[in-house]
Simulated assay, not measured.
Amino acid sequence: MRALLVVNPKATTTSGRTRDVLIHALRSDLKLEVAQTEYRGHARDLAREAAEDGTVDLVVALGGDGTVNETVNGLLSHGPGEKVPRLAVVPGGSTNVFARALGLPNDPVEATGALLNALEARRERPIGLGKAMTEGLPDRWFTFTAGLGFDAGVVGRVEEQRRAGRKSTHALYVGQALRHYVTQREQRRSGPVALEMPGHEPVPGLVLAIVSNTSPWTFLGNRPVYPSPLASFDTDLDVFGITRMTAFGTARTVRQILRSHSASSDDATPVGPSGKHVVSYHDARHFTLVSQEPAPFQVDGDHLGDRSRVSFTGVRRALRVIV
């Protein structure tokens, strides 16, 4: 099998020595070409070239969720299809939500072993993805989440800190979330975002809107976060929103999304957050988020600037993943 390994040399949790060991292990089973990313968007360009070349069977992304997202967008530059190379992931970031949602070990060496076992067993899984569309801008595929409003604002703050030299840690995200909460007092009371979904009345006043393609939405260390516990790679998209972020209500919702997502009995339906200001929808194929003013927007933890209108669609069986 001919494969391309896309390596982010700045990946948080992999050293050069670790990467060399992983490359050696993969070359034992694959006709492997290795390419290191050199700029933002480079993983997308490399994956697109591999897909267009037509001779690559597999693209392996070694890096964090940002590297994976770029790789997916490169593979799907011309849309899903049987000729699109398969995807494999070796986690190398600080959180690795997508890899962990697939059930892969968070350690890159263990994940490489799992990948080699999956290749030997010819084991793959078709997964659904989300697609975000803004008029005048390229469509953006996402693997596990997108968001408009408060959560994307936190992502933007974290990226600013990282550009200033701070290391990406869970403590950094929590700290910036608290800072953002304090500084966004007016928008916490009445958000600018409205949810428009076919067959439903519009839902205005959202402070945040989190779109999930799988669950958990993210991790705090080893602790999963569940705003939409029913979200799955096998369904369309889930939406979680909050119309008002009071101190008490927000603390209650945070406790709910951090608790175990399963009810007491094994076959019970997973329980998600609830409350007066909580909005949630499961398995939605098409919907649009509209903001009265440009609001922060993110996909898979990557801040993409401000948007006033973003449409979403769930695409089932969009990509085949070795897992």
Rank of each mutant, 00 (worst) to 15 (best):
V290C: 05
E49T: 07
D283I: 15
V323P: 00
P108Y: 07
G81C: 02
R163H: 13
V207G: 06
H261T: 01
R2M: 06
P198E: 13
V6Q: 07
L4D: 03
E120F: 02
N117E: 15
I127V: 14
R285Q: 13
R163D: 09
Q256D: 14
F98M: 08
Q187G: 06
G272V: 07
Y226W: 15
L116F: 08
G199M: 11
F240N: 03
R19E: 12
P91M: 09
V154E: 03
G16D: 09
G130C: 02
E160F: 00
G63E: 08
R123E: 14
V321F: 05
G272P: 04
R27H: 14
G41E: 04
L75T: 07
E110I: 03
V7T: 06
A50V: 05
R166V: 09
F233T: 11
K167G: 00
H170N: 14
V310N: 01
E135D: 15
P85L: 00
P229W: 05
D151G: 12
P270I: 05
L258P: 00
R123M: 11
V84D: 02
A11D: 08
A152N: 10
V193K: 07
D53E: 12
Q187R: 14
A284R: 13
G147I: 07
D306P: 07
V239I: 13
D107P: 00
G165H: 11
S274T: 13
T235R: 10
G130P: 12
L22E: 05
A99D: 01
H24G: 13
L304D: 10
M1K: 12
F142S: 03
S212L: 10
S274M: 04
D57E: 14
D267V: 06
G191S: 09
A146N: 11
Y281E: 03
D45E: 14
Y39D: 01
D139Y: 04
R252H: 09
R244Y: 01
D29C: 15
A43C: 08
A25T: 01
D267F: 11
Q187E: 15
